[in-house]
């Protein structure tokens, strides 16, 4: 029973080269690459799976900004001829629409696809039977979502340029800002979705009473200050408000105190880190039953 003696099973002693069997050595070699690159393998898999709906994703990525920029930036804008602050309504609303598009895609990708991977198309269990760990699986999925966000946001931004909605060169920074906003929301939603055991319509509820009101109360279509003070707190906790305001700063030099800009950056960063951690723990716990 020496091989099973707990005192002899400490990591350093059972890894001393001489004591290892051929099998064990082969296992350690086999685990090396997946330990380093597991998350990227998962991302590769997910991006390959996204090809299944590539066409519709491209159509919506191009159609969405066209429709919204026409309707709001040109249509609704005619009712606001004086613009907002220093700029036209189109320039005001565009960075917020960009962030909104990112949040929509992130919510799409982190609700049902996350739950499905455990329930209806339980691929996460399949992945976990390979050397890849729960944390790597969750990270890989978030990487794939980031890729999709980046593509969507870049196309959206290109359409914004066509509309002449981005006055400053720093406006290109609105792309990473929008992606970060999407990830901040997506991580939190994903952490929730991957904890759902029985689907009783929690996700549609979350969309209707969480995500949609966020669009309405995050200073997207009008400045947050125009809301009554007792509603403004929704904006302050909303990642979308922070993302939209930050987008305005880089896109047209929206004038806000520097400390507030810093708050936007820090708030989004913290939410992303917390969200990713929560998703990773949810995955690990669920896979390790």
């Amino acid at each position: 029973m020496t091989a099973l003696d707990p005192t002899s099973s400490g990591a350093p002693s059972d890894l001393s080269a001489g004591a290892l069997s051929e099998d064990a050595r082969r296992a350690l070699a086999g685990g090396a690459a997946p330990r380093r690159f597991g998350a990227w393998y998962v991302a590769e898999h997910r991006i390959r799976a996204m090809r299944g709906y590539l066409q519709s994703a491209i159509v919506t990525s191009i159609g969405n900004p066209l429709v919204y920029l026409f309707a709001l930036g040109i249509g609704l804008a005619s009712l606001v001829p004086q613009g907002v602050g220093e700029v036209s309504y189109l320039v005001f609303v565009a960075p917020a629409l960009l962030a909104t598009a990112a949040v929509t895609v992130a919510a799409d990708e982190t609700t049902y696809p996350m739950l499905a991977g455990f329930k209806w198309n339980p691929v996460f269990f399949g992945m976990n039977a390979s050397p890849v760990t729960g944390t790597q699986i969750s990270a890989g999925i978030m990487i794939a979502i980031t890729v999709r966000l980046l593509a969507t946001v870049a196309i959206y931004f290109a359409v914004m340029l066509l509309f002449g909605a981005v006055p400053l060169a720093t406006g290109v920074l609105a792309i990473p800002v929008a992606v970060a906003t999407g990830l901040a929301v997506g991580g939190l939603i994903g952490a929730y979705a991957s904890r759902i055991e029985d689907d009783r319509g929690q996700l549609p509820m979350l969309m209707r009473f969480g995500v949609t009101p966020m669009f309405l109360f995050s200073g997207t279509f009008f400045p947050l200050e125009t809301l009554p003070p007792w509603l403004q707190w929704i904006g302050w906790i909303s990642p979308l408000w922070h993302g939209s305001e930050l987008g305005r700063v880089v896109s047209y030099g929206y004038d806000e105190p520097a400390w507030l800009t810093a708050v936007h950056v820090v708030y989004l960063a913290v939410l992303i880190v917390v969200g990713l951690r929560l998703v990773a723990t949810a995955f690990t716990r669920r896979l390790n039953k």
Binding site: S21, A27, A129
Partner: peptide, 26 residues
């Protein structure tokens, strides 16, 4: 394979093939 799965899960799994009770093909 001589290794403790608590510490060497990924290494061990690199040498296993698993056919679960419920298919989890993509």
């Amino acid at each position: 394979l001589g290794l403790d799965p608590d510490k060497h899960g990924p290494d061990i799994r690199s040498q296993l093939g698993v056919v679960p009770q419920q298919d989890n093909l993509d």
